[in-house]
Design a protein around this nucleic acid. Structure first.
Lengths: 156, 156
DNA sequence: GCTGGCGTTGACGTCGGCGTCAAGGTCTAC
DNA sequence: GTAGACCTTGACGCCGACGTCAACGCCAGC
C-alpha cells in the first residue's frame, strides 16, 4: 500500500503521514522507485495515533502507544507506559474541567451582576493552569476534541 | 504615568501594552519627547482586558468591553455587546466542559479495559469542537485559565 | 511523446500573544 | 560627560501540526 491509499484509509492526509514519519512515529519501507510502502500494521499504528490525537493527546504523547504496538502487543495500550499515559491524561482532563468550571461560574456571576446593573468587581482571578478551547478547524473532516500542553517559550 | 509604571501597576509587561495598542485596544497620548502617557482610565481599560484574558477571552473578544468602558460606562460590561460576549463565552465554556467530560469518560473506559487486559476498541471518536488544554506557561506570573477559539488556516 | 496522476524532498506559511534582541533617543544623577 | 534607567520603532523567534507551494521523478495510457 502506498502513502495516498494509507492516508485515505485512515482518514488523514499524506502530509500528516510524512510528518509522523519525520517525528519517528511511523516507519516506512521503500519500493524500488523510492515510494513509501506500508502494510496492515502501519495502518494499525496510524489508527492508534489518530485515535489518541482525537482524545487530545499531542503527537509526542502517542509515542508510548506506538512503541507498545511495535513491541508486538495487539492493543497498543496494555504496556506500563501507555497505561501511565492514560492516567496522566485523565488527571490533566480532570484538572482542566475543574478549572473551566470555576471560570464558568465566575463568568456567569459577572454576567448576572452586569445584567442587573450591579457593578461589583472583585478581581476574582482564578488559579494557574491554562485551558485552551478551540472551534473545529476546517469542517471537512469529522473533528474531535484536542488537549495539548503548551509550555511557553522562555528559553533563550 | 508612563508605560513601565502602567505595566507594573497592572501586573503585565510594556511589550504587552504596546501590543494591545497595536491592536487598537489601548490608546496613548504622547509626551513632548514621544513617550507614551497614560491616565487612570487607561489603567481601568487595561485591567478590564487582563481580567477577561484571565477568563479565557482572547484579545479580540475584549474589544466590546473596552469600547463600553470608553463610552463612559463605569463598568465595561453593562453594554449590550459585552453582555452578549459573556453569554457567548458561557456557552463556549459549557460546550467545552461537556466535550472534555465526554473525552474523560472515554479515556477512563479505555484505561480500565487496558488494565484488565480486555482489548476491546470501538472507534469511539467523539464529535466536533476542539478543546485545547495547556499548562501554566512560565510560572513567574500568577497564571490563569485561557480559552481561545482557534479556527485553522485554510484560506489561500 | 505527452498528458495526468501518483510519488519524492525541501522549505516557507499559518495561528495568537507576546518575548527578545537591535539600534537608537531622552532624561537624570553624579 | 557619562553612566544608567527609562523610552522609541522594527523585526525576528517561538509553539504544534500540519497546509501549501515548488521543482522534480516515475509510470500508465493514449
Amino acid at each position: 500500500m502506498r502513502i495516498g491509499e494509507l492516508a485515505e484509509l485512515a482518514g488523514t492526509t499524506t502530509r500528516a503521514l510524512r510528518y509522523y514519519e519525520s517525528r519517528g512515529l511511523l516507519v516506512s519501507r521503500r519500493d524500488a522507485n523510492g515510494h513509501r510502502a506500508y502494510g496492515e500494521d502501519d495502518l494499525r499504528v496510524l489508527r492508534q495515533i489518530l485515535m489518541l490525537r482525537a482524545f487530545g493527546f499531542d503527537l509526542e504523547e502517542t509515542r508510548p502507544f506506538v512503541e507498545c504496538l511495535r513491541a508486538g502487543n495487539p492493543a497498543g495500550d496494555t504496556c506500563p507506559a501507555p497505561l501511565q499515559a492514560y492516567r496522566d491524561k485523565l488527571a490533566e482532563l480532570e484538572a482542566c474541567i475543574a478549572q473551566l468550571s470555576a471560570v464558568r461560574d465566575t463568568v456567569r456571576e459577572r454576567l448576572l451582576r452586569a445584567e442587573s446593573g450591579t457593578a461589583a468587581r472583585p478581581p476574582a482571578v482564578p488559579p494557574e493552569p491554562r485551558c485552551e478551547l478551540a472551534a473545529h478547524p476546517t469542517g471537512d473532516t469529522p473533528q474531535v476534541p484536542r488537549i495539548t500542553r503548551t509550555v511557553q517559550h522562555r528559553a533563550g
